[in-house]
Amino acid sequence: MNRIISLNPGDKAVVERYAQGIDRAYKLKLLALGLTPGTEFTLIKTSPFGDPIEIELRGYRLSLRRHEAEGVLCSQ
């Protein structure tokens, strides 16, 4: 199991599941945005200051903070 925090620009990963204790509102929003289990995404880049990150999924771009996205468990 991998975490978004350890991905580098250009890396692809697949969402496996959400961590148990994750904030429900946060999870619901990510789900609505298409980050459902089984979805592949690519880390495009990090902001010039290192955080947030920009990922591509389902043909569009989304930005998240690394440590907040910790609860999204994924595999490479």
């Binding site: 946060y26 990510l30 771009r61 989304l62 930005s63 903070r65 907040e68």
Partner: peptide, 8 residues
């Protein structure tokens, strides 16, 4: 607040 933003 967590940061989730679409980049157009």
């Amino acid at each position: 607040a967590p940061f989730i933003m679409e980049l157009p």
